[in-house]
Design a protein around this nucleic acid. Structure first.
Lengths: 106, 106
DNA sequence: CGAATCCGTAAGCACTCACTTACGGTAAGT
DNA sequence: ACTTACCGTAAGTGAGTGCTTACGGATTCG
């Protein structure tokens, strides 16, 4: 899964509430909607977005559908943040070191 | 800085392009705009959003303004991802272990 | 087989937001 | 002082999206 879709999925506050609710464990759609400030169809749409982003897993049990957090759903996003900010931090420290060296040789 | 603003700032593709461009080092607004598919005012607006999110630092040099990646800008977001998905992973492995145990005692 | 439950999807609407052009303000060069 | 370069902001517009109500499909229970 690409990290772009993951960021877009996490950008919505209601979808983050869904994830928070799922931290306690898998839940069906109706139960999730009861604890959220939006309607059940809205929750269903958010669950689709989160699933497409690879953040959730689905398990069908009869007419119910159990949604759960995918433990590896945020891996790509974490890798992106690491690559972006590790490079930035390296450039930062390198520049700071050069600055110190210049000051040293003066 | 709260992670919500960080996610919202990173959700836009053009803003991610700005960050990619700044990986090579600090740049003024005009130089950034030359390498991006949008106008200079658009870049200026994106830079404001990124700065408000704590992802960028600004340094004024005469009439020019040098923007650079803040090395600690994504810390809050990383902490959020860690707390959310470490818990999910713990719950997942715990459940898997219980499942194995049940199978064991059968 | 019929009723009820659980859920996803379609259609429509209001709102947000990314973009553009136009403008004004500040610092450097002649 | 005047011009030029660099930049932020205001105003307006169009596309994207999160929400609702309404509807239809699938499964379970009587």
């Amino acid at each position: 899964m690409t990290y772009e879709i993951t960021i877009a999925a996490l950008a919505d506050p209601t979808r983050r509430l869904v994830l928070e609710a799922l931290k306690a464990g898998p839940k069906p759609v109706g139960t999730l909607a009861d604890g959220l400030p939006v309607s059940r169809p809205a929750v269903s749409q958010h669950l689709k977005v989160l699933s497409d982003a690879g953040l959730l897993t689905v398990e069908t049990q009869g007419t119910r559908r159990l949604y759960a957090i995918d433990p590896h759903g945020a891996d790509a996003l974490r890798a992106y943040l690491d690559s972006m900010w590790d490079d930035a931090l390296a450039a930062y420290t390198r520049k700071a070191r050069e600055k110190a060296k210049r000051k040293d040789t003066q």
